[in-house]
């Protein structure tokens, strides 16, 4: 039987309340969102917070809205809410495609986008999506909020720039008219973490690619993205040859390691193949838009 080590529990009532509790409690406290990563880690004693501060009662952290030319998603928005969001789907089908293959419907009812980002698991699907879209994280502490590009959000596996006494409050993604997007994932069985995943957006205008983003999970790409591959595509016609060259470049930006999900060269092959498939579909969607 796995049981967490003794822990204190506090339920936060507002963002300010959560922050003041976390700040007062210091390093030994952790916020809990859906709990689907933190509680298993506490059960395995990989995490031993002295206090967990529950964010589930904070309504202002949950919801999806358009603000100016950005999509804003509250950190406590559940996977299920992201999956079914018409607004996110309208601008970026990549959200629905990724959510559809994250965990299972029960985990998705309580697991959150903010928890996924902060857990920063190397295989986190929403981290790949966020980096592909070049989104931003809004991090709030007692002295106010700061905005950090998602491509600077991670400090390595399972580490982020969110400091003790701060919480992630929002994710913001720029809206790009005419963008097509797609997500591809290979997993061992339904609901499992990816062996490799790739998510992209592309804007095709006047016959050339004018904007794009490539994100990958589970293959240890720096900040889950492939900037060199993106640079190859900018200003180019979206031909099969150009897409394939970018996909191959993306695979070179991956640093997969062999584990129970497969050998490194297989994962690298997947990085190329899945990026190519995602690019093809995103290009077609952008051209159809």
């Amino acid at each position: 039987m796995q049981t967490p080590a003794p822990v204190e529990y506090a339920k936060a009532t507002s963002i300010a309340d959560a922050i003041s509790r976390l700040e007062a409690l210091g390093e030994d406290s952790r916020p809990v969102a859906g709990g689907y990563s933190l509680i298993p880690m506490m059960k395995l004693r990989l995490a031993r917070p002295e206090t967990v501060v529950d964010l589930n009662g904070i309504a202002e952290l949950r919801g999806i809205r358009v603000e100016g030319n950005e999509l804003v998603v509250g950190a406590m928005t559940t996977h299920a809410d992201v999956l079914s969001s018409a607004i996110l789907f309208e601008h970026y089908p990549i959200f629905r495609e990724a959510e559809h293959v994250i965990a299972d419907p029960i985990v998705r009812m309580r697991g959150t986008i903010g928890g996924s980002m902060c857990q920063a698991d190397p295989a986190s699907d929403l981290s790949a999506v966020g980096s592909a879209l070049r989104g931003n994280a809004v991090i709030t502490g007692s002295s106010g909020s700061r905005t950090v590009p998602l491509r600077e959000f991670h400090d390595g596996p399972y580490e982020t720039v969110v400091q003790t006494g701060e919480i992630l409050t929002e994710l913001r993604y720029p809206i790009r008219p005419g963008a097509g997007s797609a997500y591809e994932k290979v997993e061992r069985r339904a609901g499992d973490w990816g062996v490799c995943t790739s998510g992209v957006f592309v804007v095709v205008s006047g016959g050339v690619i004018t904007d794009c983003g490539i994100g990958m999970a589970a293959v240890n790409a720096d900040h889950y993205c492939a900037p060199e591959a993106e640079a190859l595509l900018m200003g180019k016609a979206p031909t099969e040859e150009n897409l394939a060259a970018a996909a191959a470049a993306a695979a070179n930006e991956a640093n997969p390691i062999a584990d129970q999900r497969g050998p490194a060269d297989y994962k690298r092959h997947l990085a190329s193949e899945l990026t190519l498939r995602a690019l093809r579909r995103a290009v077609a969607a952008s051209q159809g838009a």
Partner: peptide, 29 residues
């Protein structure tokens, strides 16, 4: 399973299914 995978422990909390091996009882207050 005790690892949030098998779903044998599924109950509803306020109408939504939860894997009850992955939630603290105090969270159901």
């Amino acid at each position: 399973c005790d690892t949030s995978n098998c779903g044998a422990c599924t109950v509803w909390v306020d109408g939504a299914p939860v894997k009850s091996c992955t939630m603290l009882a105090v969270q159901a207050e």
